[in-house]
């Protein structure tokens, strides 16, 4: 009994001592907070923060070059937890979702030529801006869907992209991917939108698409003194800092560009 015990103890001691020396020799400093933060981050590595992934974000937070609230995917609670680890405070942010500001599906949007090539919006838009007659129309080749890490983009049967709000984490990947720049982040609780991005004048816009904003200002007038929808060079823009609430504005729009998309308050789903 003694011999085995002695042997193993001896071997253990020798290797333990060796390792202790090596540990001294090869010592590396790591901030333990970095690992703690990396553990509570969403771990999707979506890159929405602009960094290469969640572990990069963690080290940036520790280094102080980014705010704990800058992870677009993490909810408030996570941000607060990170802030606690870092010993700082962050303000709560309003939840946001992305939305595609175009309704020009294949039934109503005109094409200017027959496209032959890659099924990719970014590539198609290198050829005269893509085949849609409207310069700000969804090309329907699903670049936003491909980059979405949360399966939150759906391509409709009529060939345009649609964001599923309850899945959207507002990471912004689709916004970067869209070459037509027609996806925007909006407050998650807003329900009235102008689903058109064309600054074309009425006649030109009408030629290209069945649903368009012609800049008639009817919506602007509808709200009177402080318009919650404003016209900017022939395009109505919703003022999301002061989101419109009266759904009847949709009736006023002569070209169906304004839509009322009521949401279930609990789930965030469109009703």
């Amino acid at each position: 009994m003694l011999a085995p015990t002695a042997l193993l103890t001896g071997m253990g001691l020798v290797s333990g001592l060796g390792l202790a020396v090596a540990a001294k020799f090869f010592a590396v400093e790591v901030d333990p907070r970095q690992e703690q933060i990396a553990d509570i981050l969403p771990g999707a590595n979506c890159g929405g923060c602009g960094l290469a992934g969640c572990s990069d974000f963690a080290s940036a937070v520790v280094a102080g070059s980014i705010s704990p609230a800058d992870c677009p995917v993490a909810d408030d609670e996570t941000a607060q937890l990170i802030a606690e680890i870092m010993g700082v405070t962050v303000e709560a942010k309003d939840p946001q979702v992305a939305i595609v500001l175009c309704q020009g599906n294949i039934d109503i949007a005109a094409k200017k030529y027959r496209y032959n090539g890659l099924a990719s919006c970014a590539s198609a838009s290198l050829l005269g801006g893509g085949d849609k007659g409207c310069g700000q129309g969804c090309l329907g080749l699903a670049d936003c869907q491909r980059v979405c890490g949360f399966d939150a983009v759906e391509m409709t049967a009529e060939g345009i992209a649609k964001i599923i709000p309850e899945r959207c984490t507002a990471c912004g990947q689709c916004i970067t991917a869209c070459p037509k720049d027609i996806i925007k982040l909006i407050p998650a609780n807003s329900e009235i939108h102008v689903l058109c991005s064309s600054h074309e004048k009425g006649a030109a816009a009408k030629k290209n698409c069945g649903t368009f904003c012609l800049g008639c200002k009817k919506c602007e007038k509808f709200y009177g003194e402080i318009p919650q929808i404003k016209i900017d060079s022939f395009l109505a823009l919703v003022d999301y800092n002061n989101p419109p609430t009266n759904p009847e504005v949709a009736e006023v729009c002569p070209a169906d560009a304004i839509v009322y998309l009521p949401k279930d308050k609990q789930t965030g789903r469109y009703v």
Partner: peptide, 12 residues
């Protein structure tokens, strides 16, 4: 394959 189109995209 639309190789040139793929490369144009890649270059951008």
């Amino acid at each position: 394959r639309p190789l040139v189109q793929l490369f144009k995209r890649g270059k951008v």
